[in-house]
């Protein structure tokens, strides 16, 4: 019944990672609720907001690497993860 979805391994891994992140964030939120704060971003954000900003900008970083350069996407991934961590910590 799921044939038509044409699952491939990389995509499955991708969604699994996203799901894991969501679960971890939820558990973290339940364990220690987050307070909205102001970092280097122009608006006050919660942990979840920063995660969303991080993921969205990660998507754009990947697109920029694809569209503008010939570099390997692993570099884009590394840049994205680094950016996500910076956002979560200081954003």
């Amino acid at each position: 019944m799921l044939d038509w979805m044409n699952w491939t391994q990389p995509v499955a891994i991708f969604f699994a990672v996203i799901a894991c992140i969501l679960v971890v964030m939820s558990v973290w939120e339940l364990a220690s609720p987050c307070i909205e704060r102001r970092g280097f971003l122009p608006i006050a954000t919660t942990r979840g907001d920063r995660l969303f900003i991080g993921l969205l900008s990660a998507a754009y970083i990947h697109l920029a690497f694809l569209g503008l350069t010939e570099l390997s996407l692993w570099i884009a991934l590394a840049v994205s993860v680094l950016w996500l961590l910076i956002l979560l910590r200081w954003g």
């Binding site: 038509w4 979805m5 044409n6 491939t8 990389p10 969604f15 697109l63 694809l66 569209g67």
Partner: peptide
């Protein structure tokens, strides 16, 4: 999820698809 799956494959028909990675994105952009 289906769209994401399709986007990394070249699809000729049901059960007849090749994994092409990010080629389509490069192409589209």
């Amino acid at each position: 999820m289906t769209v994401v799956n399709y986007s990394v494959q070249d699809i000729f028909g049901p059960g007849n698809a090749y994994y092409v990675g990010t080629e389509w994105f490069r192409d589209v952009l």
